[in-house]
Amino acid sequence: MQQLDAGSVQVLTSLKSSTAQTIGEPKIVARDVSVYYGEKQALFDVDVNVPRNSVMAFIGPSGCGKSTFLRCINRMNDTIPIARVEGKIAIDGQDIDDPELDVVELRARVGMVFQKPNPFPKSIYENVAYGPRIHGLARNKADLDRIVETSLQRAGLLKEVKDRLQEPGTGLSGGQQQRLCIARAIATSPDIILMDEPCSALDPIATARVEELIDELRQTLTIIIVTHSMQQAARVSQRTAFFHLGVLVEEDETSTIFTNPSDQRTQDYITGRFG
């Protein structure tokens, strides 16, 4: 583990000592995060603060490390044998590498939605009920029913599926499947959702639905979205981070990034002038 700067140490300790979170403090604090796949370094000393109850967009050319960094936040890189992560990430001031922290619990708090909708080959109901059940979040069947219903409701899918909850999730349209995956992600009451290009397989209407949903979820959650669409980043996020060759080049208010970025590399990328 690397040395932390004074500011983040303060954030880490002050947050840890209090259970009530202060609105102004970042939800996620990352310091000097580097990732290696075997010999190859994929991320270089990433520092970023993600504010709570907001959407942060990660943009950058393919292979620049966006997904790699996303996977650090819920320790999914632990599941890749050759991956090695250095540096520090804290959520609500708690170090995610803290040995006392249960990784399974961490992943329940930090939900993830992927590019290709990947519902389990089970019923719509089971897709959403799975998480709460394994995490023991429901006391009885009625409780579980209620969680499934509110999750589908919040994902904007309930109306479309309430009469066919026992049908397979894989029978839904692409856009519905993606919203089912979002319902599944929010069913464990996470406070962070990581979305890795969640709309790249969706048509414009389905995309608009997901964007609308992101905006609603932001009221209670912190969301990071990786996207290749500048317009999508501009529409859904409050802050945007630009990655290039494993380096976080620039992170700022979204409106600033898209009208007047500071770094030439950001400018070249978002205006379509990349090599």
């Binding site: 500048m230 317009q231 898209f258 009208t259 007047n260 970025p261 950001t266 400018q267 978002i270 205006t271 379509g272």
Partner: peptide
Amino acid sequence: KRQPMAIDLR
């Protein structure tokens, strides 16, 4: 057609 950004938008 292009949804201009940054310098292009300006």
